[in-house]
Simulated scan of single mutants.
Amino acid sequence: MTQRMGIALGSLISGLVALYLHLWKLGLTGALGCSSAGGCEYVQGSRYGWFLGVDVALIGAVGYAMLFVAATIGTMAKYEDETWPNTLMQLMIWPAVLFTLRLKYGEFIVLKGFCSWCVVSAVTITLCAILVTLDRKRLAKLA
């Protein structure tokens, strides 16, 4: 599996999780399945569950969908050694890493809460950052 395939897979999984959380906030799913006693509802319903009036889960679902498309296109034979898919993914991943740090600060330090679903996204975006960096190094060796 290439780094770009890993990014595509991770973004697909986290995108589906984000979509689930967004649908829950819209009231379109049942109870929120969460392993921590009420932590997910507490965190999702807090001010950190929204950013500039937009549901953070919706931002995640759209962002991961865009990342999935970029990574998938980047795995195509004619683009696998092109730098532009990597640059595009970096432009999406690094701001998402910073946004995730803000959310984790709010979740752990301010709210003193824990959302197990949010961990999926935090781990995924961290892995995507590592993979996009490794992909950039791979491309540098080809140049």
Rank of each mutant, 00 (worst) to 15 (best):
T29W: 09
L127Q: 01
V119K: 02
G27D: 13
G30P: 06
F51P: 01
D55L: 11
V62G: 05
A140G: 12
G27Y: 13
W50F: 12
V120Y: 02
Q90A: 11
V97F: 10
A31W: 08
D135E: 15
T29H: 07
A140D: 15
I93G: 01
F99A: 10
L28C: 10
A37G: 13
P95D: 10
G106F: 05
S14F: 03
S35K: 10
L23I: 11
A129Q: 05
G53P: 09
L142A: 15
T133E: 10
L139S: 13
G30T: 08
C40E: 01
I73S: 09
M92D: 00
T126G: 13
S11I: 03
I59H: 04
F114A: 07
V110Q: 08
K137N: 15
Y105M: 12
L9E: 04
I130M: 11
A71N: 06
Q44P: 01
L134F: 14
T133D: 10
L32F: 03
E80R: 13
H22F: 15
Y79H: 13
V132W: 02
A8C: 08
L26T: 08
K141Y: 12
L103Y: 04
V62K: 09
T126R: 05
G74R: 00
R47I: 11
F114Y: 13
A31M: 11
G39R: 01
Y105L: 12
F51N: 07
G27L: 13
C128I: 04
I130V: 15
F68Q: 06
A65R: 03
P85W: 02
L23M: 15
V97K: 00
Q90M: 12
L131C: 07
Y42K: 07
T2C: 02
T133S: 14
W24R: 09
T87W: 10
V120A: 10
G53L: 12
I125Q: 00
S11K: 02
R4D: 07
I59T: 09
I130E: 05
Q3S: 07
T83Q: 10
V69I: 15
A140P: 10
L21P: 00
L32N: 05
E41F: 04
G39I: 02
V43N: 01
Y64R: 03
T100V: 12
L19N: 08
G33P: 09
T72E: 12
L32I: 02
T2E: 02
L111N: 04
C34F: 05
G63D: 00
V56A: 09
M5A: 09
L26F: 12
L103N: 01
V17W: 03
M92P: 02
G74H: 06
E82G: 00
V132I: 15
Y48C: 01
I73T: 14
G10P: 04
L88Q: 00
T83I: 08
V69L: 14
S35R: 11
A65T: 03
P85Q: 06
